[in-house]
């Protein structure tokens, strides 16, 4: 049975990018909370595989929307997206290039699968296929997860390296030169001997240099977000619908609660 699309949790696609990503983020979290409730209800009613698959697809399109809007915001202001003020300090500490670290998906999967496995250990030992959760992740699923993990860590490392190389350009020749000239200009202007034209020229150069830096940050962040979404999609694709629902529930719980705990901590700190 396909539930009449309770699209309450889906802002229509044509909605224009909100003013600030922070605002969108808040709304999206509320939607995720509702998604979570729906998924839990679906589990409780032991819906058909087909129906569960529909739910999984909808959750995935909700994630896709998140990254679509995020990409728009990145194009507008990558620096804000790299230092997201809508995240708590706790979340920030766990961030990798402005979002969750892709390889954590596998830790989530292994942790969840481990909890299910222990709970059903005696059944699994008797050779029973329970098929209801992540405890009986099959041989081929395990192999595909492992392959995907290897690939994901490889891409994660490559991006980390790219970022490292880019961050080092903060001290490249043009930056060092410009910062020196700008400092000298300030001193000159204090002694009132600087020409206005010179200052403008330098400001222009500063702007264009920083623009290049930002462009590269955009490229890196877009790639990181692409890896995040792809990893999520690939993990879900390996799982059966009911397993995917379990996984998405755990992912939402973890995301929402860590955000909440972090916010509480921040509030208490002030």
């Amino acid at each position: 049975m396909i539930m009449s699309s309770t699209s309450s949790n889906h802002v229509p696609d044509d909605v224009s990018c909100p003013e600030s990503f922070g605002g969108f983020f808040e709304t999206w979290l509320q939607e995720q909370e509702r998604d979570l409730e729906e998924l839990k209800a679906a589990m409780a009613h032991s819906e058909s595989t087909r129906s569960l698959q529909d739910r999984v697809d909808r959750i995935m399109s909700h994630y896709e929307k998140y990254y679509r809007v995020k990409s728009e915001s990145t194009k507008k202001d990558v620096l804000e997206m790299l230092t997201p003020s809508w995240r708590s300090h706790l979340e920030e500490s766990f961030l990798w290039i402005g979002g969750w670290r892709p390889s954590t998906a596998f830790h989530l999967l292994y942790s969840l699968s481990g909890i299910h496995f222990e709970a059903r250990f005696s059944e699994l030992l008797r050779g029973l296929r329970t098929g209801v959760d992540l405890g009986d992740l099959s041989q081929s699923q395990l192999r595909r997860v492992d392959e995907l993990q290897g690939q994901t860590i490889r891409e994660e490392r490559e991006l980390t390296e790219t970022l490292a190389a880019h961050q080092e350009t903060v001290a490249d020749t043009s930056m060092v030169e410009l910062s020196h000239i700008a400092t000298e200009l300030m001193r000159d202007s204090n002694s009132q001997s600087s020409g206005r034209a010179g200052t403008d020229l330098v400001n222009e150069r500063v702007e264009s240099t920083l623009d290049t830096k930002e462009e590269k940050f955009k490229e890196i962040l877009e790639k990181a977000d692409d890896l995040r979404l792809r990893t999520l999609r690939n993990v879900v694709d390996i799982l059966s619908p009911i397993q995917a629902v379990h996984f998405l529930i755990a992912a939402a719980e973890l995301h929402l609660r860590v955000h909440e705990w972090g916010m509480k901590k921040d509030a208490n700190a002030h």
């Binding site: 699968s113 496995f117 992740l137 099959s138 041989q139 395990l142």
Partner: peptide, 16 residues
């Protein structure tokens, strides 16, 4: 045998 190796591997992962 494969099942046994998978089950043991999953047990190891479950036990962190």
């Amino acid at each position: 045998c494969s099942d046994a190796s998978v089950l043991l591997t999953k047990l190891a992962l479950a036990r962190q």
